[in-house]
């Protein structure tokens, strides 16, 4: 499903020198896979995730998504592909503070031109599926960290992406909440969702089917 070949990401340091965040990354991720990316701070984990999520455009190399050559796509085409295929879960949840739970779930759909009735149906379905119907009118600040991340995951998958990218999804949660989220990921993966997560936790990594280790920008 995802094939990276010779991906490199660097920043200029001045005087013609470059600082490489990622070096010569070759990675294949099959449909239904659950990959955990691990490595020390500064290894390039989040950068890799943002390249996979097509948030970062400053890389070189080849990136194929379902046989689509992402490296040949223009910025707008990448955004369209991302909106259709990728969901994102963040460590800090990144719910919009001034929107209710319902509205936070609705917003990715509104960016994807769903009709009003379709959006209402999908949001109702997500609220029901994640058992947060009672919280739909609450604002993020009125929820616990676990509940916020639950909404974050619901929001990431509400538009039915093929791939879910998660950047330290349990980093801000205590252990029991973390386990709940990871169990949810396992369930989603079992239902067919391809998942790539960045994590520092061996335990969380073990929920995945395989682990990719990064060090100083290299896959080791």
């Amino acid at each position: 499903m995802i094939r990276l070949h010779n991906i490199e990401r660097s920043y200029p340091l001045g005087r013609g020198q470059m600082f490489y965040v990622l070096r010569d990354i070759d990675l294949d991720i099959a449909a239904g896979d659950f990959v955990s990316v691990m490595g020390p701070s500064g290894a390039g984990k989040s950068t890799l995730l943002h390249i996979l999520g097509m948030h970062d455009h400053g890389w070189t190399g080849e990136y194929f998504f379902d046989e689509t050559a992402v490296h040949h796509l223009k910025s707008k085409e990448r955004a369209t592909l991302r909106n259709a295929q990728v969901g994102f879960v963040f460590q800090q949840y990144h719910l919009l503070d001034d929107l209710t739970v319902y509205e936070n779930l609705d917003i990715p759909l509104s960016y994807r031109h769903y009709s009003k009735s379709e959006r209402a149906a999908l949001v109702a379905d997500a609220l029901d599926r994640f058992q947060i119907v009672g919280k739909k009118d609450l604002y993020p600040r009125q929820l616990s960290g676990g509940q916020q991340q639950l909404v974050g995951v619901a929001r990431a998958i509400i538009a039915s992406p093929k791939v879910l990218l998660a950047d330290e999804p349990t980093g801000n949660l205590h252990s029991s909440q973390g386990e709940e989220i990871m169990e949810l990921f396992r369930k989603l993966n079992e239902e067919g969702m391809t998942i790539v997560q960045v994590t520092h936790s061996e335990k969380n990594a073990s929920y995945g089917k395989r682990i990719v280790q990064l060090r100083d920008g290299w896959i080791v």
Binding site: F90, H94, D97, P108, Y111, R112, R155, A159
Partner: peptide, 13 residues
């Protein structure tokens, strides 16, 4: 900026 970043990440053009 954070809010706008999230919106872009969620699909806003």
């Amino acid at each position: 900026e954070r809010e706008m970043g999230i919106r872009v990440a969620l699909g806003a053009g």
